[in-house]
Simulated assay, not measured.
Amino acid sequence: MKICLVGYGKSNTDLLTKLLETNHQIFVSQDKDFKESDEIYFKKNNIQYETNHNDLLKNCDLAIVSLVSHQKVRLLK
């Protein structure tokens, strides 16, 4: 299964660690740049990532939205 983590806040960071133990293909998508340390981690673990909510998000079987990102959006409204 292709799983896309939307946003890379605390909840999805922890979830990614758990998902790496499975046979699923994992993607990470968010609408801002990642920290350099995150990009190094993704590359080391063969995790595809994007900063524009584009093809990875559109072509996944399951999208999991980071709760932290969702709460921040609600606070900004």
Rank of each mutant, 00 (worst) to 15 (best):
D55T: 11
C4L: 05
V68L: 03
L76D: 14
K72E: 15
V73P: 02
K18I: 09
V28S: 05
K10Q: 08
E36W: 02
F27W: 00
L57H: 02
H53Y: 01
S66W: 00
I64A: 03
D61N: 11
Y49F: 12
R74P: 01
K43G: 08
N59I: 05
L16N: 01
D14S: 11
H70Y: 10
L57D: 09
V68M: 01
Y41W: 13
Y8R: 06
T51K: 14
S66G: 14
F42S: 02
I26M: 03
Y49T: 10
G7C: 00
V28K: 01
T17K: 10
S29R: 05
K77N: 15
L19A: 07
I47G: 06
C60E: 15
N23F: 04
F27N: 03
N12E: 01
E36I: 03
Y49Q: 08
N12L: 06
V6D: 09
Y8F: 11
N52E: 09
L67E: 02
K35V: 01
N46Q: 09
Q25P: 04
A63I: 09
S11K: 07
N12Q: 07
L57I: 10
Q71N: 15
V65F: 14
L15Q: 07
L56H: 00
E21I: 04
R74M: 14
G9N: 06
S69W: 04
Q30S: 08
H70S: 09
K44L: 02
L75A: 14
A63P: 07
Q25R: 11
